[in-house]
Amino acid sequence: MARQPYQPPRQGVPGMIIDSLLMLVLVFFALMAPAWIAEWRAAHEPAAEAAATDGAAPAVTWEELGQNPTMQSAWEKLGKDPAAAKEIIDHRFDYTIDIVKLLFVAALIVFYFWFMLSSSAREYREVIAERFGDKDQG
């Protein structure tokens, strides 16, 4: 015999609005946080500031950029001169690994899945008990 069904409270309109807005705010912060961090970094990195105030960049050639004639032709067809191409070519990822940050991210992932799975397991037992009855009742 299944246990007495749980009767959830009825949520009023103000509560629904607050919950909906809260989710919107959470999503908005999650989306914007990397952009804000990037802006903050750009504003606080002395190297970037110095580069920005250096004035006009010296002229470069395709050869200096390591581009063969076929590549050069493709850049030109795409409307890019050597200066514009240099900006793209110079943009490189830095794959130096910050061990502390890596461990922090790993800890976040482990904590997230641990919390989710342990809470889900507890909730799931309630679902099963209501659907099939408590275990000792068969």
Binding site: A33, P34, A38, F104, F115
Partner: peptide, 19 residues
């Protein structure tokens, strides 16, 4: 993590708070 660590952290924090 290689190049987009801030995005990874941000979305994990979002899902932790939502949970």
């Amino acid at each position: 993590f290689l190049g987009y660590a801030d995005y990874l952290i941000s979305i994990l924090v979002f899902f932790i708070f939502a949970s």
